[in-house]
Structures are given as structure tokens and as C-alpha cells.
């Protein structure tokens, strides 16, 4: 079904940007590089507003879990290092 729709109404080639932001259509030629950067900046802000930021609760859980995990691994590696350093010193020193 969707294919049939797509084939009858393929977008015009050559102006792909206008497809994605119809609001800019026609205005583009008037704007200089600064104006275009302004639009781009506003689009970035618009997209950022739609971002789902983590809730406070999730954030705390994730942070704690990551910290616990990292601390455990660091402790594990430190113990290993201490042991191996002693061992190597005993063998080669």
C-alpha cells in the first residue's frame, strides 16, 4: 500500500531540503549565510525541545549503578595489580 502511494507522488528532485522544512520554502534565496546559520540554530533548538531527557529517578538509579560497577571493577583491577606487582617482583627482582 505504501509503495503505491510513494510511486504516484515522488517528491521533486533537486530540492531535498525543502521537503524537510516546508516553512523555509521560498525564503532561502534571500537569506545570507548568517541567516541560514540562524535558521539552523533555531532548528537545533526545536529538535532539542523534543528530546526526552531522563527523569530524576532514572538518572539517580543509572548513576548509582554505573558508579557501583565502576568502583567494583577498579577495586578488582587494583587488587590484581597489587598481587601481580608483588609476584613479578618476587620472580624477576
Amino acid at each position: 500500500m505504501t509503495e503505491a502511494l510513494g510511486s504516484t507522488a515522488t517528491p521533486e528532485r533537486g530540492r531535498p531540503e525543502d521537503q524537510t522544512s516546508p516553512s523555509r520554502r521560498g525564503k532561502r534565496k534571500k537569506k545570507g549565510p548568517l541567516g541560514r546559520m540562524g535558521t539552523f540554530y533555531r532548528q537545533i533548538i526545536a529538535e532539542l525541545r523534543k528530546v526526552v531527557w531522563p527523569k530524576r529517578n532514572d538518572l539517580v538509579t543509572y548513576t548509582t549503578v554505573v558508579i557501583v560497577f565502576v568502583v567494583v571493577i577498579i577495586a578488582f583491577v587494583s587488587v590484581l595489580d597489587l598481587g601481580f606487582a608483588k609476584l613479578v617482583e618476587w620472580v624477576f627482582g
Binding site: T2, L5, A9, T20, I44
Partner: peptide, 21 residues
Amino acid sequence: IRAGRPTAEYLAYVLNRITWP
């Protein structure tokens, strides 16, 4: 948004703008 090329363009549009920050 229509399926096919417009969708790909839309995804690229969003991705581009979100990757900047």
C-alpha cells in the same frame, strides 16, 4: 511523512540537528 525517500531525509534532518549539540 511519506514512506521511502522523504522518511530517510527526515531522519537525516533530525539526526544532523541532534548530533550538533
